[in-house]
Each structure stands twice: as C-alpha cells, then as structure tokens.
Amino acid sequence: MSKTSYINRPNRPLQIYAVLFLIFLYVPVLFLPLFSFNDSIYVRFPLEGFTWRWYIELWHREPVWNSLMNSVKVGAATSVIATALGIFAAKAITRYRMPGRGPIVGFVMLPLVVPGIIFGVALLVLLSRLGVPLSLYTVAIGHMIVCLPFAIATLIPRFEGFNKSIEEASADLGENGWWTFWRVTFPIVWPGVLASLLLTFTISFDEFIMAFFLSGTEPTLPMYIWGQLRFPQQFPSVLALSSLIIFVSFFIVLIGQYLNRDVQETLVKKDT
C-alpha cells in the first residue's frame, strides 16, 4: 500500500511549523554552550572571541569536583535502588491479579504530578521532626520518590512486552521463582533495567527542588550552580558547567532511549 494516503498527504505549513517548533525547543538551551566559549565576562552579543578559559577555570575549582562527586553518589544510589524496587513493582503490576491495582498504581505515580515543592517541604518537615540531620542521604531519599515512578513506568512496558506464559514455561520445566527470575525474566527485561538505571540517574543528577530543601552542608551539582547564580561574575563558568551537564545528560538519555528502542517502537503504530 502506498505510504501516502489522502489523510496523511504532505502538509507544508504543518511541516514548517514542526521545524520551527524544534528550533524554538533547542535554541535557548544551545545559547549556554555558545556563550561558554565566549571570551568575555559578560553574556551578551556581540561575541568577543573563542576561549577555553572558563572550562580550564572550572577544572581547577575544587567545589565543582566535590559537588560533582556528591551528585554522582546520590544519582548512583538512587538509580540502583529505584530500579531494583521498580523491577519488583512492575512485575507485581503486570503479572498478578492484584486487588486494588488501579489505586496502587495511581498512588505510586503521584510524584509525577504533585508539585515538587510540596514533597520537598513535606519531607523536610518529617525529617526535622524525626531529628534526622540533612545530608546527601536525605537528598537521596527525596530523589527516590521522584525517580521511582519513572523507573516503574520504564519497566512496565518491558514486562508487558513478553507473555506471562514464558515465565510459566520455566516454572513448568522445574525452576522455582528465584531461578525463573534469573534465567528468564531478568535477561528479557535487561534492556529496560539498563534504560531505567540511566534515566533515573539523569533525573537525580539534574534534580534541584528536592535537593534545595533536603541537602545539608554538602551541595549537589545543581545546588552548587544555584549558589553561583547570585554572582554575575560567575556566569561564564556556570555556562561552561551547564554545557557539560547538558551534553552528558543528552548523551546518557540517548543511550537509554536507544536501549529501550523496541519498547518505544510500540509508540509508533504501523502505517497502513
């Protein structure tokens, strides 16, 4: 059948709109790397000339390295735990007749829609009443709540993507739940697990609101940037740091999306 039918015949104005939309989506973000190579303390046109100096300066700044390490620690812990819990939850949601499934899923997905500030202050109040000092651990707890819905949402399509009878076949052939998980379930959902790890790491790495309310004396990278934004003379180095973060985030997310591509393909209906 011809790929172009009456309904989806080319529509030039719409096509132009789409391209403009994408440009509008990316251009503001692309100004950050543009100005990060500008040899001027001021972020303004006209450009003064190319320089690496903001990056070099960044390299020698110890607080940047410290907050980077903090963010990596929090991101690693959050992504591993959120993904592990996400695997269990996605299996329970997709594989069993669970009474109350709808409300449970709704409850777990709540952090996707409730404003982050509410979770931030609510957790802050709880932790302070319990007398828990704010630290990277409390940031990680906050990030868990933000990341868990994403981990589950990434893994559910993976579990739905293969038939329950494949796991039943393993049980039938003599393997108990533990071995069935490691010999059948895990190898099949593995790309989703990897994607979930990468995506939740990125979310945690970039997260600001929870960190704002829940971090103690050790800042995460976004917290460090927030602190620097008060000083206009720091703008160029913040631009350099932001450009690096954006580049790394894009890269990690693209890998995650690539690993998960066959699940994402389900978003694309066959054109008939």
């Binding site: 494949i166 076949a169 039938d172």
Partner: peptide
Amino acid sequence: VPPHERPVNIVFQNYAIFPH
C-alpha cells in the same frame, strides 16, 4: 505443589519459547 515440582509438563498455546 508448585508447578516446578509437579511431574507434568505443558506445551503452551503460544509455545512460550524463550526468546533470549
């Protein structure tokens, strides 16, 4: 007696061949 300890084996309607 769970499925993995029963002296029976099954051929599924969709065959459930392990894809990996």
